[in-house]
């Protein structure tokens, strides 16, 4: 702003009108005018997705340049070009699609189990004093244990088959869901509960019409965290002991110093994670359209 050094009472702004900026004499001192243009005319015409894609694309270009000039050796990190060719090959021979199917299925089953357990316990804890007393302390204690530390015990209990991987993912997903569902329920505005009471809602009516919708934003935040944890648990479970899946592919590649395959697997993980995030975002957009939130400018 160019008006910083003028005294505050001299500030004036023209909101409409299309003439050039003028200096208007008010009394003896000239008042400097500033044109406030409409926000929509100033907003770039570039679509949002394109703007968001710019960052990653620039990173790719930089990477390719570093690889081509030999700054980045291929046994440290393969070039984007090599990685693309490898990815093509892995897709063509069916290795990657089948590995992805296995991994996605693991996450899906694990996540659903985690949602059932996490949200279930969160509801019991959030809605009932007895539930809170019984469940919350136990969950908070277990939460302090890093889930990866439970792997030896899970292997003893469940063997090294499919169950242990799914259990690990379910475990990882359940905690954030529990915490956020519980916090969401306890964070529901007391004034709305009171309003509900004066409207004649009973206990179940209050839960259904006031508490649960009010807890939904929290629960969905929990779902996002749960997704992130679930992918983490998947990578962990698959690289520790597995005979199929993306993690297994990656583990194998490590033995042959195939950084290109490793990166392809990482990218696949990333894309699967992004896809899951899109699903949750869509859910949020549909379920939380009532919410008066700041959407960014």
């Amino acid at each position: 702003m160019s008006t910083h050094d003028t005294p505050p009472e001299a500030h004036t702004a023209v909101v409409s009108g299309d003439g050039p900026e003028r200096a208007v004499a008010r009394g003896a001192a000239a008042v400097e005018l500033e044109r406030l243009v409409s926000a929509s005319s100033r907003r770039r015409r570039v679509p949002r997705w394109l703007r968001r894609a710019t960052g990653p694309v620039l990173l790719l270009v930089l990477w390719q340049v570093l690889s081509a000039t030999g700054v980045l050796q291929s046994d440290v990190l393969a070039s984007p070009g090599t990685i693309a060719r490898t990815a093509g090959g892995l897709f063509a021979d069916g290795t990657l699609p089948s590995a992805m199917a296995v991994s996605v299925q693991r996450v899906a089953v694990g996540l659903v189990s985690g949602v059932v357990v996490g949200v279930g316990l969160g509801l019991l804890s959030g809605l009932m004093r007895t539930g809170e007393d019984l469940i919350d302390a136990v969950v908070q204690m277990l939460r302090a244990v890093p889930f990866a530390g439970l792997v030896p015990l899970l292997i003893v209990w469940l063997g090294i088959g499919e169950t242990v991987k799914v259990a690990l993912i379910a475990l990882a997903a359940a905690f954030p869901l529990y915490l956020n569902t519980y916090a969401g329920i306890r964070g529901v505005d007391d004034q709305l509960i009171e309003a509900g009471v004066t409207l004649g809602l009973g206990r179940w009516g209050l839960i259904r019409h006031v508490v649960l919708p009010g807890a939904l934003p929290g629960a969905l935040t929990g779902l996002r965290f749960a997704l992130a944890s679930a992918w983490l648990a998947l990578v962990f479970g698959e690289t520790v002991n597995a005979s199929d899946g993306i993690g297994f592919l990656m583990d194998q590649a490590r033995e042959f110093y195939r950084t290109d395959v490793i990166v392809v697997c990482l990218i696949v993980y990333a894309f699967l994670g992004l896809a899951a995030d899109v699903v949750v975002r869509t859910l949020e957009r549909l379920l939380l359209q009532w919410r008066p939130t700041f959407t960014g400018k």
Binding site: L192, E194, G196, H209, P213, W290, R291
Partner: peptide, 8 residues
């Protein structure tokens, strides 16, 4: 405050 349920 009107205390309308924002989700309805």
């Amino acid at each position: 405050a009107p205390r309308l349920m924002p989700w309805k």
